[in-house]
């Protein structure tokens, strides 16, 4: 096994933690607004799991970086250009169907990724993955069931789910395109080759979408620039103004 570049490892850990942080915050925006109480609670619980996982990923990232930063510093004191989440998770909530579709498309990747990471050569990465994968298994089942329920539901719910799928599908590709950081992780046995995850992902997604009577969009165009930090969508900046407001207005505030 090649010794791994610590800067690459830091970037990889930020990607894992930024995905869960940004999606966790997005999902928490539903708190108190969901269509029914049970869904409100389910969304809040999902957000909570994701924020908990963020603490572990960014905590490890901070440790690897070795600059005395904490998980909170990384979450609250970086600006847009330093975030390394994929574009899918920063997309706005839209209606309930769009939120659930985004969740399912991410959860299916997250499950495949974490399952592979449980076999990581890095013991800390493997431990975080083993903890998270149990929660994510539950997320993907719930999101998948809800995609099926709404897709194969009324004319209105079906039409909204198809619209959500058409909108979000071009954001799926970014999760599977490796770059030099991913190559370094794969070479060191820390993380899988991302292209190896695509088969399981496509099989799960195809099965759920078929049961949901939804049509997978054609074409393989993929929006990119989130995980590299090259170009986030405009939505991330707006999200950060809310999420980071307290630490920016009252630096160092704690309770």
């Amino acid at each position: 096994m090649a010794a791994v570049d610590q800067a690459h490892l830091f970037t990889f850990l930020c990607r894992m933690g930024d995905n869960t942080l940004v999606l966790g915050h997005r999902v928490s925006e539903w708190c108190g607004h969901a269509p029914v109480l049970e869904e409100d609670i389910a969304l809040a619980n999902t957000a909570l799991d994701l924020i908990g996982q963020t603490q572990m990923w960014l905590g490890l990232a901070a440790k690897v970086e070795g600059k005395d930063r904490t998980a909170d510093d990384l979450a609250m004191l970086r600006d847009v250009w330093d975030f390394r989440n994929v574009l899918l998770v920063e997309q706005p909530n839209g209606d309930f169907g769009q939120t659930i579709m985004r969740q399912f498309l991410f959860d299916a990747w997250h499950l495949a990724m974490l399952t592979a990471l449980t076999k990581s050569t890095n013991a800390d990465v493997a431990a975080i993955a083993a903890k998270s994968v149990k929660e994510v298994q539950y997320h993907v089942e719930r999101a998948g069931d809800t995609v099926i329920g709404l897709g194969d539901g009324t004319t209105e719910s079906h039409q909204r789910m198809q619209k959500a799928l058409d909108l979000l599908w071009p954001y799926v590709g970014e999760m599977f395109v490796p770059d030099p950081v991913d190559d370094a992780m794969a070479a060191a046995g820390i993380a899988p080759d991302l292209t190896d995850l695509r088969g399981d992902y496509d099989a799960l997604v195809a099965s759920v979408l078929a049961q949901a009577t939804l049509k997978t969009p054609e074409g393989s165009f993929a929006h990119k620039g989130g995980k590299s930090g090259f170009q986030h969508s405009e939505h991330l900046g707006h999200l950060l103004t809310q999420m980071q407001w307290l630490q920016r207005a009252y630096p160092g505030a704690s309770w």
Binding site: E38, E39, I41, A42, N45, Y138, E141, R142, D145
Partner: peptide, 9 residues
């Protein structure tokens, strides 16, 4: 089952 999530995680 009513919901897969409840009052605590």
């Amino acid at each position: 089952e009513i919901s897969r999530f409840g009052s605590t995680p």
